[in-house]
Amino acid sequence: MKNKAPFILLTPGLILLIVFMFLPLVTIIWPTFYDGKLTFGSYLSFFQDNYNLSVFWRTLRVSLIVTLICILLGVPTAYYIARTSKKWRGLMMAMSLFPLLTNSVIRSFAWINILGTNGVINDFLMKLGIITEPIKMLYTDSAIVVGSVYLFLPLMIITLVGVIENIDLEMVEAAETLGANRLTAFMKVVLPLSLPGIIVGSILVFSGTLSAYTTPQLLGGNQNMMLSTFLYQNAMTLGNWQSAGVIALIMIVTTIIVMKLFNMIAAKFDKRGGEHA
């Protein structure tokens, strides 16, 4: 009785996951290792191709830059929200949540309007006479970065607000009575204590940017592929299922490695000691 109940409860989910996630994954990945015999050839040749490499590095570079920008903008904003009076905090949280709950197509579309050749920025600058020719902003790596920051900054903010709210304000005051000015108190007390939140937020932002499809598709275009759009192109446009499988595994492995790395950083900095002795 006692041993059977959890088994019965878990089985439907396990079956569905195994049949419709695990098996399909095997279906696309197995052929990349096996063509009559076991081989890593597909992967070796993937990483020997300059174009493939450029997509791979662009994906990592963009994800890293986006993560850094989200930390830089997210930490002060989250600190500000966490320290504002309740009334305003609710409004600010709603303002951060709203983009997060809005479709990513809409959010990328917004930046097409702003960055496009006839977009808001070019229009504005031309009217002022600062430029005579529109600047190319859309379909660049920077456009992907801006669009991705727009997509994921709210996630970083919301993750951090939760963590910073739990830091006792008296801790900052204590630091100040001991002679720390605001900046020092922030750097020496708030920042180290927010680190777990920064790590969680960074994992979300990095893996989110790495696997996002909409933003690179709409703002990057065909010249600035990321792994996700590259996978789609190989699978659906070129019908190159072998390559698509290779890219799929590379994306999964990269995501896992990045998470492990962030968690290692967290473990290294988090020296708060064990539980109550």
């Binding site: 996951l17 419709f20 996630m21 696309i28 696997s211 499809y213 996978l231 994306m251 896992i256």
Partner: peptide
Amino acid sequence: PAMIPGVVIGYALFQF
């Protein structure tokens, strides 16, 4: 399923 990139899940299901 939350850790695996969406495009990978989509593509795997499409194939399967």
